[in-house]
Simulated scan of single mutants.
Amino acid sequence: MPILDIQAIVSLDRTECAVHCNSKKRILEIISAIAANSNAKVEEDQVLASLLSRERMGSTGIGNGIALPHGRLPGLDRVIAIVVTSDPAIDFDAIDNKPVDIFFALLVPEEQTEGHLQTLAMVAGKLNDKDTVKAIRKATSSDQIVTALQQ
């Protein structure tokens, strides 16, 4: 079941603004902790293992300072997003070799494949909008990030 509306997967309790960190592994640990704290069915170490496993296949840094880390999780009943901005931007092995400061992580139920790809495409399309990205970068609170994504 594809998610066609970003509002269905983004929430304030899974959004963090201007997180201080300095490595790819650390930002993925932060994302995993946020996911686990917001959903009792999600184990932090499972999330981290899933995200790291995907990154080993190739960086999810899509360029322009944006990364879309993603992974499948058993026991998840719906797609969830974790949105984090970092200050400073960090080296994430992105395709354009530029540092990344916007992380839009997607966790999907293990058995979802088709919906997962459509959701990724929808998110990538949203993050392709220069005004949305500019608003996310200017945000000083999680509220402002969520608002930027919902415009």
Rank of each mutant, 00 (worst) to 15 (best):
S11A: 12
S11T: 03
S11C: 09
L12W: 05
L12D: 02
L12P: 08
L12R: 04
L12N: 06
D13I: 06
R14D: 14
T15Q: 04
T15M: 10
T15I: 10
T15V: 14
C17W: 02
C17N: 02
A18L: 13
H20C: 04
H20L: 06
C21H: 03
N22C: 08
N22A: 10
N22S: 14
N22M: 14
K24H: 11
K24G: 15
K24D: 11
K24L: 09
K25D: 13
K25Q: 13
R26W: 04
R26G: 00
I27L: 05
L28P: 10
E29W: 14
E29S: 14
E29A: 11
I30W: 01
I30C: 04
I30N: 03
I30K: 00
I31W: 02
I31H: 02
S32Q: 10
S32V: 05
S32F: 02
A33T: 11
A33K: 15
A36I: 04
A36V: 02
A36C: 05
A36L: 01
A36S: 04
N37G: 12
N37I: 06
N37P: 03
N39H: 12
N39V: 06
A40R: 06
K41M: 13
V42H: 02
V42P: 08
E43L: 08
E43M: 12
E44W: 05
D45P: 09
Q46L: 06
Q46K: 11
Q46V: 13
Q46G: 07
L48E: 07
A49N: 03
A49L: 03
A49E: 14
A49S: 11
A49D: 13
S50R: 04
S50T: 11
S50C: 09
L51Y: 14
L51E: 08
S53C: 08
S53K: 13
S53D: 05
R54M: 07
R54P: 00
E55R: 00
E55H: 15
E55K: 07
E55I: 04
R56Q: 15
G58A: 11
G58L: 09
S59F: 06
S59K: 02
T60G: 00
T60V: 03
G61N: 02
G61R: 04
G61E: 06
G61S: 10
I62V: 08
I62M: 13
G63K: 06
N64G: 14
N64A: 15
I66Y: 06
I66Q: 02
L68A: 09
L68E: 05
P69C: 09
P69W: 02
H70S: 11
H70F: 08
G71W: 12
G71T: 08
G71I: 11
R72L: 12
L73A: 10
L73C: 12
L73F: 05
P74Q: 15
P74V: 10
P74M: 15
G75H: 11
G75Y: 13
D77P: 08
R78V: 01
R78C: 14
V79E: 03
I80N: 01
I80G: 00
I80Q: 03
I80F: 02
A81V: 15
A81Y: 01
I82C: 09
I82F: 07
V83T: 04
V83E: 12
S86T: 15
S86E: 06
S86A: 08
P88W: 05
P88A: 05
A89H: 12
A89F: 08
I90K: 12
D91Y: 05
F92Y: 13
D93H: 01
